[in-house]
Amino acid sequence: MDTFLHQLLSGLANGGIYASIGLALVMIFQATHHINFAQGEQAMFSAYIALTLIQAGVPYWAAFLIALAFAFIAGVAIERVVVRQFDNAPVLAVVVVFLGMLFIINSLAGWLFTYNVQAFPSPFPVGLGSKFLSAHEIGMIGVTLVTLAVVYAFFRFTPLGLAMRAAAQNPEASRLVGIRVGWMLALGWGLAGAIGAVAAIMAAPIVYIEPNMMAGILLYGFAAALLGGINNPWGAAVGGFIVGVAENLAGAYVVGTELKLSVALVIIIVVLVTKPAGLFGRTVVTRV
C-alpha cells in the first residue's frame, strides 16, 4: 500500500510539470491554432539561465524570477520576430518553423552550456520530505499549484487577462473594441514561455539539466493538453496530473521503466480514441 501511495503521489508531482507545459501549449493553441513544438526547448533554455545565475552566486529565488522574466521576454520576441511572419502560411509550414526553432534553441543551448548532463539545485529543505514524497516533490507540487492559481486569477480577474481571452476567441471583434490583438498574442507567448520555464526549473533537479531534457516532457505535456481537451486550459492542467499518475503507475506495475513512456502513451491514445474531444473538451461543430 505504501509503495502504491508513493507511486501515486510521485506521479502527481511529475504531473504538475506536464500540467504546466500542457497549459502553455493550450494557451498558444487557443490564440493561434498551432502547437508550439519549441515550447520545451524555450523552457530548457530558461532553466539554463537560472542555473548560470545560481552558479554565479545569485540567490535561488532571485535567479528563478529573472529566468521567468527572460522566458517571458524571449516568448514575446519569438512571436514578434518569427511567428508573426507566418500568419497566413499553411499549417504544415508553421509546424516546420516550430521544428526549426526547436533545432535552433537546442543547438544554441548545447553550444553555450555544453551537452553534458548537469545537476540542478532544489530550493526546498530536505526536512520537508516524508516517506511518500521527497522534499523537492512536495515543493514542486506547491509551486505548480501556485503557478496555476496565479494564471487562473490573471485570466479571470484582470482586464488584461479578459482582453487576452477575447483576442484569442474572436480577433476581429476584439479589434472593434480597441484591443491590440497583435500585442495580446505576443503577451500570450510570453506568458506561455514563463509557465514553461517554471516547469523546466522544477523538473531539472529530477531529470537533470541537458539540452534534450524536455523532449519526453513536451510529449507528455502535449498528451496532457489533448487529454484535457485542447480548448480547455484547466482541462490541460488536470490532464497533466492524470498523465503523471498514469505514467508512474504503468512504470511501477505494468511493464517496468523500460517501456513506461510507450505504455503511458498507448493508454492516452486509447482514451482519445474513445473520447476524441478529450476528457473536458467541448466538441466543436463546424459548419460545412
Binding site: L162, A163, R165, A166, Q169, E172, A173, L176, G178, I179
Partner: peptide, 30 residues
C-alpha cells in the same frame, strides 16, 4: 475605434464564450 467609432458588425461580433458582463466590460476596454 479608439477615436470614437463603434462598429456593430454583421454576425454581431459578440464574444460568445464570455458572459454578458464581460462583453460589456470589453466594450469599454480602451
Amino acid at each position: 475605434v479608439r477615436r470614437g467609432i463603434a462598429h456593430v458588425p454583421d454576425g454581431r461580433g459578440t464574444f460568445v464564450h464570455l458572459t454578458v458582463e464581460e462583453n460589456l466590460v470589453l466594450g469599454a476596454y480602451s
